[in-house]
């Protein structure tokens, strides 16, 4: 056990990263098209969950509307391409900015609110967004959705095959991951996390708490916008059903199971929640329920998620309690032994 732990220590981090990278590069050459599509879906969710991780994990503002920001990006990109024939790269950027702007607007009222109210506001945004896209027939074509969105084209190269899209998205995810990680491990990231842990404490060291909350929200939702633009062009069809509240909840779950406050956790969480339903597909109708049970089991036995830090979960959950009980039992036993010695 110790040796296994040692293998995953910081010393071997570079080795594991290199190995993972090689696997990711080699993967499309040995996998089926379906598997490639699953991987690509994971990449899109990676962007979403990374964004949400910054907002919910690092800034501590439980964002229940990530799917709506995702949708804003997707619809902006799709409409720009379909109606005005704007090149993809521009749509991509505008989609990110548009979602970021929405994020900015949503975060402003959130500054005055407690966690739960904030979750409610983002939930409300999610539903308002859905109501708009479902009913603004002339632009979004309502529940029918937008079809025939052209595939991604960059500098004259069309990304239409599964492999090419795979590599494009892999590249984007890697770049975004590095940037996000850099942000988190910088002055800004620390300020964001400090604000989450103690807003007044953060202000007392000169951190402009409100500014960093808004900043985290804008960065996180911008990523969702990017993901939306990519998704729209990748699938070629979007409808309101892609951006329902359940999707937001799934993204939230990815972050929590991955481990709130851990960027790599958001990647693991995304992979987990895309792959798990595929794996338990044979369970058919029981699938959702099994997913639920897995979530409950996680919360009971590892509330900090796969990679989250114990400190963040601040847990006195079942594990801690068992540990405490064990300690008490040990102490009682020792005391009893000592008493026994005394008698002798």
């Amino acid at each position: 056990m110790e040796q296994i732990k040692k293998l995953f220590s910081a010393k071997y981090k570079r080795f594991w990263l290199a190995l993972m990278f090689v696997c990711l590069i080699a993967a499309p050459f040995v996998t089926s098209n379906l598997q490639k599509r699953v991987m690509t879906t994971i990449f899109i969710y990676c962007l979403l969950s990374m964004g949400n991780m910054l907002i919910s994990g690092h800034a501590g503002m439980l964002n229940m509307g990530q799917a709506a920001f995702y949708g804003v990006g997707a619809y902006i990109a799709a409409i720009m391409q379909l109606n005005y024939g704007v090149p993809f790269i521009l749509c991509f950027i505008v989609a990110g900015l548009g979602a970021g702007l929405c994020g900015f607007l949503v975060s402003i009222p959130c500054l005055r609110l407690d966690t739960d109210f904030l979750s409610l506001i983002t939930t409300a945004f999610s539903y308002i967004f859905l109501a708009i896209v479902r009913n603004w027939m002339s632009v979004t074509r309502g529940p029918m959705g937008l079809t025939a969105i052209p595939p991604i084209e960059l500098f004259g190269y069309k990304f239409s095959g599964a492999t090419s899209i795979y590599f494009l998205l892999l590249g984007i995810v890697v770049v975004c991951y590095i940037l996000m990680n850099n942000i988190v491990n910088s002055r800004i990231g620390r300020a964001i996390q400090a604000t989450r842990d103690d807003s007044i404490g953060a202000q007392s060291v000169g951190v402009k708490a409100d500014l960093y909350k808004v900043l985290a929200f804008v960065i996180g939702t911008t990523l969702a916008g990017f993901a939306g633009a990519l998704y729209a062009s990748y699938i070629g069809y979007i409808s309101p059903n892609n951006f329902v509240y359940d999707t937001s909840l799934t993204i939230m779950q990815m972050c929590i199971i991955g481990g709130l406050g851990s960027m790599p956790g958001s990647i693991i969480g995304a992979a987990f929640f895309v792959v798990m339903p595929e794996l338990i597909r044979p369970l058919a109708v029981y699938r959702v329920g099994v997913g639920g049970i897995i979530m409950i089991a996680f919360m009971l036995f590892r509330p900090q998620g796969i990679l989250g830090s114990r400190a963040f979960a601040c847990s006195t959950g079942i594990q801690e309690k068992l540990k405490q009980k064990h300690m008490e039992w040990k102490m009682r036993k020792q005391r009893a032994e000592r008493a026994g010695e005394g008698v002798r």
Partner: peptide, 16 residues
């Protein structure tokens, strides 16, 4: 203090 940050990070935030 910032409980979910490391001791080092707490001081680094102080140097914000």
């Amino acid at each position: 203090i910032f409980k979910a940050l490391t001791v080092m990070d707490n001081i680094l935030v102080g140097q914000h």
